[in-house]
Design a protein around this nucleic acid. Structure first.
Lengths: 215, 215
DNA sequence: CAAATAGTGTCTTTGAGACACTATCGT
DNA sequence: ACGATAGTGTCTCAAAGACACTATTTG
């Protein structure tokens, strides 16, 4: 086969988003090696022989966050020739959304100094990220905003049982705007299912727990 | 670098859609070589050294359809291990939408027996396509339907000047359902701009030509 | 009962859907 | 005048937006 054809390494870069302290956060790692040593970057793995892209993404999420059974979807494939100084590397990015409670559980055994970073600060800030990762995060942030409007991805950020004030906060963070309580509840009513449980112990009216209803 | 990492060939597969005779069509080629010799497949090219994915897609569209300056966007990246019997090949698919008048111009100088095929027939029919290309076409068809609802991609299928009955037919084909004339016109009103031109010579009331208005 | 948050009722505005009507061409 | 397609007016109904109100807990 003609040797002028590209035979690149294929990386899977992971955008693991979560919500913590009422802010959208993303998992980033500090690069331990050149290129871009010391800079923040998306966690990623190289695709192995015999491994599908989805497999590699799954493996990456397990390695970095110690998690299984999490929402993820392919985002976009980045193939600029100069995006990695080591040579041609194609990056297939994956979007993953997790409940921060589950993520926190495994934060102790984190390998490469993975940490949660505030997405708006990263995007608005001056600090340069490794490779084209800032652009990729921007793209992922946009996708989340869009999909929040016409899918149920917001639920991925919450545990199985949640209150409506919690759910509304998630929507507000993802959409970047305030919502009216009554309108919000009308809109999500078909997606949720009441439970008998309520919060307690707080100095105000308790709120009911719900779970997601089958579509 | 560890040799267990994948170094695949990277193909760019093109979904060139157009509308002809009030039907959604796609450009397919008959494979001249094994594997899948004789079967229909998406036109595609291998990505070359020093070429970006978008470059390769652009080159593929030029080669197959002889066209420049056409709408295209990356669709999805397919990386199943067994999708190509020759070995690991990653396929980055691109969606492209063209006005059939422009496509017809270059159909004479077509190289590899490229032809237009009815999308619904291909998807509904029994005939097997090469590789996983039927699945890819299905995915592209879905994307078009979705984007028709919240973007202006429908305009890509028409020349610069068009009548509203033409535009409505395009929408109906893409969405797969009939639309009410008055409602349709209200909805697209902000996207279009009147011209002074009208159709003529037909045995009924002439219709006005419009052009797309800047967003 | 006061502070705080949860939860509901309802008026208004906007847009989608359905349908009937009028307008203008060629023959 | 008629057939054919272009184009408009308007009623209805559902959803989005805005806002005011009631409810239930702890201290």
């Amino acid at each position: 086969m003609d040797m002028s054809f590209l035979r690149p390494l294929v990386a899977v870069d992971l955008l693991v988003f979560t919500i913590l302290d009422d802010r959208l956060k993303i998992v980033l790692v500090e690069r331990a090696e050149e290129p871009f040593k010391g800079r923040l970057s998306l966690p990623g793995v190289f695709v192995r022989e015999g491994e599908t892209l989805d497999d590699a993404a799954q493996r990456g999420i397990s390695e970095e966050a110690g998690l299984r059974g999490i929402y993820f979807e392919q985002l976009y494939t980045w193939g600029e020739a100069d995006r990695d100084p080591r040579g041609r590397i194609i990056s297939v990015s994956y979007l993953s959304l997790v409940n921060s409670e589950r993520l926190a559980l495994t934060a102790g055994e984190r390998t490469s100094g993975a940490g949660l970073y505030d997405v708006e600060e990263i995007l608005g800030g001056e600090e340069a990220l490794a490779f084209d990762h800032k652009q990729i995060i921007e793209y992922g942030r946009e996708r989340i905003k869009n999909k929040t409007e016409y899918t149920r991805i917001a639920f991925e950020f919450l545990p199985e049982l949640f209150t409506l004030p919690q759910l509304q906060r998630v929507y507000e963070i993802l959409l970047g705007k305030q919502l009216y309580k009554a309108n919000f509840r009308r809109k999500i009513a078909p997606m949720i299912e009441e439970t008998e449980l309520k919060t307690s112990g707080e100095a105000h009216r308790p709120s009911r727990y719900y779970r997601q209803k089958a579509e």
